[in-house]
């Protein structure tokens, strides 16, 4: 009981809460007029490409309803592609398409071209962007590195690295579970796995309630695994952060089995759940790292 009280009282010294994140960090380090560079994935990708930051290839962008058919005709020559709302958040509105013998599949479900264009139209109408009109993005499909399949076979796991002034603070690996239905987001039932930044190894996996040493569905070990291309990923995240005028960023990366680490997107307001995945408050790290760097 006493320990719990002590922990509760110590919490606000180590953990970064929403209020403090918004006021002391985001407000101070990110200019509002620059938000769109991160919030609009089409703009962000333009910056990636300009700075030669490794990222999935953009096959095409639809801005207006009248362009849907023409762009679709162009991009549908690819056998695998991903459709994304440019301003979507939390993985909503993402459709992953595979073509087998002339038939499109979304995951394992067959879909008609009519259903696909309907989905694109919904993106444009702002269904996934709080009613704002939006753009639809067509991207190269990323084939996950076999490292991920050695933990759990389904979905596309990604890394999230939080950086302040282009200095990596904290990272986690987000991994789907049976419950999360292929999605890797923490509040959709995915796992958040903390990352030991120095060693480049995985910590425990957090499922929103409990910590696990192994993947709860597959039983494969997680804790202590060495992350492939970790140094490369850190370097890529720093390179990306430097390309943006935004100083506090959450950068999402994936590892393609052939092309290696790639940046998927950047976030201006990265979630705070990463502290739970790492069992470590961000506030201590922010203080420690900024002081160390600033005094250099």
């Amino acid at each position: 009981m006493q320990k719990l009280l002590k922990n509760l009282l110590g919490l606000d010294k180590s953990v970064l809460g929403i209020n403090e994140r918004n006021i002391e960090i985001i407000n101070r380090y990110n200019k509002r007029s620059d938000y769109q560079l991160a919030d609009d994935k089409a703009l962000a990708k333009a910056i990636f490409e300009k700075n030669q930051i490794s990222c999935p290839k953009t096959y095409g962008v639809v801005n207006y309803l009248t362009e849907v058919l023409a762009v679709w005709k162009q991009v549908s020559v690819n056998d695998q592609l991903v459709i994304k709302p440019a301003k979507g958040a939390g993985g909503k509105g993402i459709m992953i398409l595979n073509k087998r013998e002339g038939q499109w599949f979304s995951g394992s479900k067959p879909v008609t071209e009519e259903q696909i264009t309907y989905h694109i139209a919904n993106i444009l109408f702002g269904l996934y962007s709080f009613g704002d009109s939006d753009k639809a993005l067509f991207e190269e499909f990323v084939n996950p590195h076999p490292f991920f399949a050695s933990i759990y076979g389904d979905g596309v796991p990604d890394f999230r690295i939080i950086l302040l002034k282009a200095r990596p603070l904290q990272a986690m690996l987000r991994m789907p579970t049976e419950r999360s239905n292929g999605k890797a987001n923490l509040h959709q039932g995915g796992l958040g796995i903390g990352v030991d930044m120095e060693r480049g190894t995985l910590k425990m996996a957090y499922d929103g309630k409990r910590y696990h040493k192994v993947h709860p569905d597959s039983g494969n070990p997680i804790n202590g695994l060495a992350i492939p291309c970790w140094k490369e990923m850190l370097a890529l995240s720093i390179q990306t952060a430097k390309a943006f005028p935004l100083q506090y960023l959450g950068i999402d990366l994936v590892i393609d089995r052939d092309k290696g680490p790639m940046v998927m997107e950047v976030n201006v307001r990265p979630g705070l759940g990463i502290q739970l995945a790492n069992r470590q408050g961000l506030k201590t790290i922010v203080k420690h790292k900024t002081e160390t760097y600033d005094n250099q």
Binding site: N7, L11, G17, E20, Y211, R279
Partner: peptide
């Protein structure tokens, strides 16, 4: 508008970070 303390419900959410 300048209040930066942890929200009361955040204590419940983040208490797990302390048990490591």
């Amino acid at each position: 508008g300048k209040w930066i303390g942890l929200r009361i419900l955040e204590y419940r959410r983040f208490i797990k970070t302390q048990n490591a």
